[in-house]
Design a protein around this nucleic acid. Sequence first.
DNA 1: GTCTATAGAAGGATAGAC
DNA 2: GTCTATCCTTCTATAGAC
Lengths: 198, 198
Amino acid sequence: MQSDTRRRILDTTADLFRRHGYTGTGLKQIVAAANAPFGSIYHFFPGGKQELGEEVIRRSGRMYQELVEAVWSQGDDLVDGVRAVFDGAAEVLRATGYVDACPIATVALEVASSNDTLRRATADVFESWVTAAAERLRAGGVPSRRARPLAIAVIQLLEGGFMLSRAAQDTEAMDAAGAAAIELVAAAVRRGKLPAAR
Amino acid sequence: MQSDTRRRILDTTADLFRRHGYTGTGLKQIVAAANAPFGSIYHFFPGGKQELGEEVIRRSGRMYQELVEAVWSQGDDLVDGVRAVFDGAAEVLRATGYVDACPIATVALEVASSNDTLRRATADVFESWVTAAAERLRAGGVPSRRARPLAIAVIQLLEGGFMLSRAAQDTEAMDAAGAAAIELVAAAVRRGKLPAAR
DNA sequence: GTCTATAGAAGGATAGAC
DNA sequence: GTCTATCCTTCTATAGAC
């Protein structure tokens, strides 16, 4: 089955990008880890590394969004959901030796000033995360006008949490990020319940 | 003067790391941009790319901390200082076409799972930023116990702001980060003024 | 001690056998 | 259409001329 090799290449590349970034991951390294012949990359992705990279970014963005939404939904209310996301992130960091973090953050910073096609792909992923999170915040009682900037802040805290926690190999930073996110969300919900708000 | 070449290599490398990251920056690219002979790198940094990289990380960390502290000090009080930092970051992003951001963030994510020496260097830089920011927050009236996690959150919002703003080539994310940071700091100061707090 | 030339490995990409 | 062998470039690093 041809699509099986293709999928294996995508999975492997996503994994290597998350660990070592875009420039840090070689095509030979990918096919070796995916047990695929070298030519398969150019068979399935005629545009080479960039085409493969773009598909991996968009696909990882979708998959990670689904994962986070599933964890978020475990919470009974908004604050519980946010707490579950940050607690889950800290748990995954600990369990994987601080390697499994955001699948696109490293790539996003790497390509931001050097590859416009890939930069755009990372921007689209972040935008879809922001939109989805804002929608959840609104549904949970955050005043509509405040939902989007709050969603951005929550995602930034998560990304910052990954960055500092991976560097320090310690979840203190992710814990602090979660506490800050919870405080911001709780305050926004409180404001939403006041008669004057919105 | 020999130390002039050395300094030029350090400055150039810092600039290239910020734009293209660690793996994305080649030694030949560095000497070309620094107008230095190739051998100079190994003359001044016998440990090669890693030794140069470590010194650049620690040096950039110090310099950026000084820059941020200078901007922070422009504010009259704590909230004003934080606002100045995020406004300044947004301004620099706009003015440089979204290339001049945090000097070590890209490198930090790249090396977190692949080079322990450099990972440790980035961790040390983040830690020194956290310590300094926490000290300022305490001096500005934030209860001592809350200063450190708050400092972490503020730095994470700044880093997340750089990441999302560079990807989108838009300062909306940095503006949202600043607003969130201000809200968190203002709330902490308010809590510090309550008699029951601390 | 400043600089050039080059080694040896790894990078992305391609051609063509089967 | 699956895979191998190879091309050319670039990488880090070193040797040695001057």
